[in-house]
């Protein structure tokens, strides 16, 4: 799942100079608020994420005619017992 990218013009924000391999952690009240990284690092992480997704992706099952028929047959009610006399005989 690719991260959503929000683009800002460079003149709208003040960003510290980044070099590859270094992440600047922006914190406030001792909580991490944002991470600023070099584009090459970000693209490497994105590529790794895509690799993981590919590695973990499962092939969907192909439902054949027999499986579809079985599913439909067992998901379709037959003729339920509604006769009060039969119900009384069964359950009192």
């Amino acid at each position: 799942m690719a991260l959503e990218l929000r683009r800002l013009p460079g003149d709208k924000v003040r960003v510290p100079d980044q070099r590859p391999g270094v992440v600047t952690v922006v914190s406030r009240y001792s909580s991490e608020r944002a991470m600023v990284m070099h584009p090459s690092d970000f693209h490497r992480l994105e590529a790794l994420d895509a690799l993981l997704q590919d590695a973990a992706a499962t092939d969907p099952i192909a439902f054949g005619d027999a499986a579809i028929a079985a599913h439909r047959a067992e998901e379709t009610p037959g003729a339920p017992i509604t006769d009060p006399a039969k119900l009384a005989a069964l359950f009192g």
Binding site: I61, G64, A66, A67, A69, A70
Partner: peptide
């Protein structure tokens, strides 16, 4: 999961495929 009686699968070849684990949905 619900079950399905194998005798209700009409085609004997389909039945055998299920026994051999070759139908991933059954």
């Amino acid at each position: 999961l619900r079950l399905h009686r194998l005798e209700k699968v009409g085609d004997p070849e389909d039945q055998e495929r299920i026994r051999q684990g070759q139908d991933p949905a059954l």
